[in-house]
Nucleic acid binder design. Structure first.
Lengths: 165, 165
DNA sequence: TCACGATGCTTCGTGTACGAAATATTCGCT
DNA sequence: AGCGAATATTTCGTACACGAAGCATCGTGA
């Protein structure tokens, strides 16, 4: 499984990992700073903008979109509801489902905020040539495929039971 | 500042942001899973391996390396100290500084754990051709430069005072 | 129909993660 | 020497973030 080739690429790999970490954490930090100007946290801004774009998001759909667990989103929505930004609405079709809606105040705030989450990262991407952009997308796609495959394998191992708690 | 060009790249940019998010969160999640097999959390594994490589890391040096605030690392180290994995040691030269050292137990555990943090991401990178690897590094470097520049600007604005709390 | 597993959400306990304020120490300057 | 700014760390309050357990509801099959 682990390659036995010599790895002259080690320093390059370390550098790449470092940069991804940098780009991610810095974007997160700046989004947070942006959000705080409106009395929001980073995740709250993200959710606010999502609810502005998509009406009728259920809590689990929202969780998937932002790659968080339901229990995490429950908490964030609690706080946003407390602030009067969103409302919970039980689905009539399936009473287990909770739909999230922006309140007037929430909708107003969403309109007022002109930036996307990860805005800095996006605007940095815009500065790349279209060739670089295409290459980046292509390579990242390959990477993602690799990771997805490994995750699938891992998930299988777990349900096969070859696993100590 | 924001370009007024037409942006046919919008979907590409969204896709790239998505992928970075995916790669980061998934790597984090798998690192965590790995760590839990040894009774550790993700950040604890990261710190354990760092302390194995570098002796005499001060708390702030460590914070910088993992891109976290001092107050965050204080907490993580508290818990690791409680578990008997690390020791705090005041520097004699500068009594404000705290150096972190692995205990016997910590060192043993570090030796036992053969993987790096973000291991999945690293191994996915290894599957790329060296051309792709070079290109990726080159493009990410450009991106990072852009983000650094924007962060520097932002930092300056703040100290210039053009800022509401 | 009615037991029962699956699904959607919440609750709870623990561990990050951050910023602001507090504390201790060092350094620069006079 | 000694005062005030700067630095290293901790403390505190709040907000994620996750997994496990709990609750309500839905769907299916006997």
């Amino acid at each position: 499984m682990t390659a036995t080739l010599p790895q002259p690429e080690r320093p390059e790999i370390d550098a790449i990992v470092e940069m991804i970490l940098y780009l991610y954490t810095e974007s997160r930090r700046l989004t947070k700073g942006m959000a705080s100007g409106f009395g929001l946290t980073g995740p709250q801004l993200t959710i606010l903008k999502l609810l502005e774009s998509f009406q009728d998001l259920s809590l689990s759909t929202l969780s998937e979109r932002i790659r968080a667990q339901n229990s995490t989103v429950t908490g964030i929505v609690d706080r946003m509801e407390r602030e009067g930004l969103v409302r919970r609405e039980r689905s009539k079709a399936d009473r287990r489902v909770v739909y999230l809606r922006l309140s007037e105040k929430g909708a107003r705030l969403a309109r007022e905020i002109q930036v996307e989450p990860m805005e800095i990262f996006r605007s940095a991407l815009l500065s790349l040539s279209s060739t670089d952009l295409r290459d980046l997308l292509r390579i990242l796609t390959k990477l993602q495929r690799q990771v997805v495959a490994r995750v699938a394998q891992d998930g299988q191992k777990k349900s096969d039971g070859g696993d100590r708690t």
